[in-house]
């Protein structure tokens, strides 16, 4: 096998470097300071998040990635206010936030549409909660539904929609409230590969055109690189920020970039961070396989 020579993921083209310089001059939307989260379990205290610090700038797209159990879900749920941190602060526009609120929209992996409401009423829900009258809420809802291309389904119930469509409704519902930040917890994790690619394209399109800052949790490396300006890499036990990667792939993104050297270099780096070459495999990860095919079998070896 020929080894492909990849550039360093730290190498940025002038355009990309220039863009990051400008990005970091934008106002800070979300700031996380010394965030700790501990859980009490029967076997003692478990630290899920340890000393998390980061900033997201206006209209930035940040992906959070890490091995399973690194607390990325806990992090985003804490940002949403659905979990309370043990210590540390979450600042939105410089003001500390406590508890959930409509200023931080959230999209869950499990869609969480209200099954008893039609698509239109689902999108209207948040608007009505935040003080819109029925009429204005309905008008706004239609705009958002149109924006995600589901006008024809405005009066359908969630169970009549496909997974991708449901998630588009969930995104429209979260955006309708015009939150300062959109938190997405593995939103495309339950979708098949094709729908997922389509949803990523949709999301990029939405992000480009709307004043929204996105924090996006995923465990899919390609997804993270394809979508993110910067990637926050967490490591597990306890969940700590391992590295913040500035993705050197130029914007705007397109699927052709999946094989570009910058993309692959970033992916290589993420692989190393998330699946570091281990000296010895953990006992429970090993399987005890022995050859169970007769030596004189028609197919002697699969290779």
């Amino acid at each position: 096998m020929t080894k492909i020579e990849l550039p360093s993921y730290l190498e940025q083209s002038d355009a990309v470097r220039d863009r990051f310089e400008r990005l970091k001059k934008r106002p800070v939307i979300l700031e996380v300071e010394n965030l700790y989260k501990e859980f009490d379990t029967p076997t003692g205290k478990v630290t899920a998040l340890k000393d998390i610090n980061f900033k997201t700038y206006k209209r930035e797209f940040v992906c959070v990635i890490g091995p399973s159990g690194c607390g990325k879900s806990t992090l985003v749920r804490t940002l949403a206010g659905l979990e309370t941190q043990s210590s540390g602060r979450v600042l939105l526009d410089g003001k500390e936030v406590q508890g959930p609120g409509p200023d931080r929209g959230m999209v869950f992996q499990g869609y969480t549409l209200f099954p008893w409401l039609t698509v239109k009423k689902n999108v209207m829900f948040g608007l009505q909660m935040t003080g819109h009258s029925r009429v204005t809420a309905e008008e706004e809802a239609f705009q958002w539904i149109d924006l995600v291309g589901l006008s024809k389904f405005a009066n359908s119930y969630p169970h009549q929609l496909s997974g991708g469509m449901k998630q588009r409704v969930a995104i429209a519902r979260a955006l309708a409230n015009q939150p300062r930040i959109l938190l997405m917890d593995e939103p495309f994790g339950a979708l098949d590969a094709q729908t997922r690619a389509k949803m990523q394209a949709y999301l990029m399109e939405i992000w480009k055109n709307i004043d929204i800052t996105i924090v996006f949790i995923t465990h899919d490396l390609d997804e993270a690189i394809y979508l993110a300006d910067r990637i926050l890499v967490l490591k597990a036990h306890p969940g700590e920020v391992q590295e913040v990667i500035e993705v050197p792939v130029p914007q705007p993104r397109n699927p052709d970039q999946f094989l570009s050297p910058e993309f692959l270099a970033t992916k290589k780096r993420l692989e190393d961070l998330i699946h570091p070459p281990k000296k010895e495999d953990a006992e429970e990860d090993r399987i005890n396989m022995v050859r169970m095919v007769p030596v004189d079998d028609e197919v002697e070896s699969v290779f």
Partner: peptide, 19 residues
């Protein structure tokens, strides 16, 4: 998770119960 979704959409106590 339906309750959580409603919370992030701005629902509070009593509306949460009835809506």
């Amino acid at each position: 998770s339906l309750l959580e979704a409603a919370l992030t959409l701005g629902a509070k106590n009593v509306t949460l119960l009835f809506r």
